[in-house]
Design a protein around this nucleic acid. Structure first.
Lengths: 186, 186
DNA sequence: CATTTTGTTCATTTTTTGTTGAACATTTCG
DNA sequence: CGAAATGTTCAACAAAAAATGAACAAAATG
């Protein structure tokens, strides 16, 4: 593919060549960034490719195109596409417009507050909602009365535990936003 | 195996039978608990078995033996063993002593504060440490000087980004404990 | 001691998750 | 319009993670 590019006769558009090409290999420093972020990704049990992509953007002073990401990370288009989608859904990456180039150009969002709140919004909040739903079902099943459970003491215990779960939910709804707020200034 | 048990002639020891056996099937309410906790486990990308075990203990008024867990959840001994180990490492499950029974008896820890702090201690803290280590390496690679990177502007940018990472670490070290503290009272 | 009970380890199998790449839109350009 | 550029989707493949169960260790029991 790079061969095809080279073979294609082109007028040298002064700057464009340097901008478009760039080295296909990661610099030592970039490798360190990638290494670091891949480690972080793994620790959150996110796909490695996410870490790679984010690292590359984090370490880039200029917005990078889809193609640049694919080339520099030697990664499939499919992974890049899906990785970028996820990163965007988390608000960890933004697409910026670059004049004179119809391709998307991506930039890393580096504000910790935004990253965390994106993570909470996309990963944690849904789980909490799902939990709330199930908790209702549980309460219903429980409300079927002591008839469902043999002894009343047992029944009372379960009711107590269900309440404990509600307490957890309340805590989560209160303290997670507080945590985000805590990350605000420097 | 269950056949072998049945074939083995036994004197009925009055109470012991009921204590030892218990229903091998989950009650509808227990199923709801398991369902809920398996969902939570998945959302944290923890193995399903963790959720099952914790749910069972959470919904049990009495400490359960290893064997009871294996039977009620119809799960392999291997999974139960590993699951319990992990849960204990998180402080989510405690082993209690029960007189006249040499087997371990397990109870769920239900204080959200303890669960979260265990999670942070076992899963997040190590990641942060690893990150710190890599960040040092990165800083070193960067300190190799602008010589390593072509332009000084680029170099300055990378230095800036590395500092940003240090900021993240500081934030994490400060706010995570604060979050735990926030979960304390009711 | 030999035996049973209780639980752990670990090689293997199963399941889940991530990656790849080619086919398929869609848009731009000449 | 036809060709090229740019991305996305998805079926097939690969890698990683989890579950299984039999072999093993340790402790208690008789």
């Amino acid at each position: 593919m790079s061969i095809a590019l080279r073979l294609k006769p082109r007028v040298r558009p002064a700057v464009s060549a340097a901008v478009k090409a760039g080295p296909d290999r990661l610099s030592p420093v970039e490798i360190e960034f990638v290494d670091l972020f891949v480690g972080l990704a793994r620790s959150v049990k996110a796909p490695k490719s996410l870490g790679e992509i984010y690292a590359l953007l984090f370490a880039s002073a200029v917005p990078l195109t889809f193609d640049a990401i694919v080339r520099k990370l030697a990664m499939s288009r499919g992974s890049a596409s899906q990785g970028l989608r996820l990163l965007r859904s988390f608000g960890a990456v933004k697409a910026t417009y670059v004049a004179g180039d119809r391709r998307d150009h991506f930039v890393a969002e580096t504000e910790l507050r935004k990253l965390v709140s994106g993570f909470l919004r996309e990963r944690i909040a849904p789980a909490l909602e799902g939990g709330a739903e199930r908790l209702e079902r549980l309460t219903t099943a429980l409300a079927a009365g002591p008839s469902a459970t043999r002894r009343t003491a047992e029944f009372e215990f379960l009711r107590h535990r269900a309440e404990r779960l509600q307490g957890w939910q309340r805590m989560a709804r209160e303290s997670l936003p507080a945590l985000v707020k805590m990350l605000d200034p420097s």
